[in-house]
Amino acid sequence: MGLFLLRSYVVLIFLFIFAPILVSFVFSFSENRFPSLPLTEYSLVWYQRVLDEPAFLDSFKRSLTVAGWTSVLSTCLGFGGAYVDYRYRFLGQKVYVALGIVPPMIPVLILGVAMLIFLSRIGLSGAQHSVVIAHVVLCTPFSMAINRLKLSQMDQNLEAAAWNLGATPWATMRTVILPFCLPAILASFFITAAISLDEFAIAWFVSGLEETLPVRVLNLVARQSSPSVNAIGSFTFTMSLTLIILAQLVLIVSQRRSGRNE
């Protein structure tokens, strides 16, 4: 009985998470310019509208590139930063950690303008790579926190044991620490990619004329109230869900195979 209640509760929470996504999915097929009840005729006009704009695909590709680089770089930096904080005790460590966590706390409007001024001073503003730089600054703290959490779960003696067994620091890193932190690294990879894929306020300022998808979505939804965004949202959501399911299948198949081998 308790388990049943718990299960229903889990379903309820998931319902809360997915309700807006599902509803926007439904709206994306409604002809009505301003989403409202009752639903009007079924139509694909918003999908047509999206596909008709050549800029949409460009910005979509750009966003994927930016998210890819951002997640790789900020996960590397975040893991490195977390490891340094975990392994070493040094002067100003608190300041180091504090500085590391500040960027996501700065209101995005301010951070966006500051980034624009900073990047154009060093001649790097107004393109895709500027967005990557800005997003790495924004995302690294998340990655650092997740990795630091995982590292603090690690048995402190594990690393020392590896050294005692003659492993070089690099080999220890590769064979002991990295495998242990793998779930955290993967999680931080996903989360930073997700943050980057959804960030528009800073990107608006620094991307110049190379707009990313969220910046376009912002224009469409906040200023024009266009249901095209429901189509875009459903499109990207379906795509990412497909990717996740594919990854799952691959994982399950490979687990089965390795299970058989054992």
Binding site: Y83, Q128, H129, W163
Partner: peptide, 28 residues
Amino acid sequence: PPRSRSRRKFLRQGVAAGAVALSAPMLI
């Protein structure tokens, strides 16, 4: 582990990562 070495390594990796990022043809 020798502290300064690994820290230098860390720095070097950071710089390398940065260089890769900046020279990426996809980006610039």
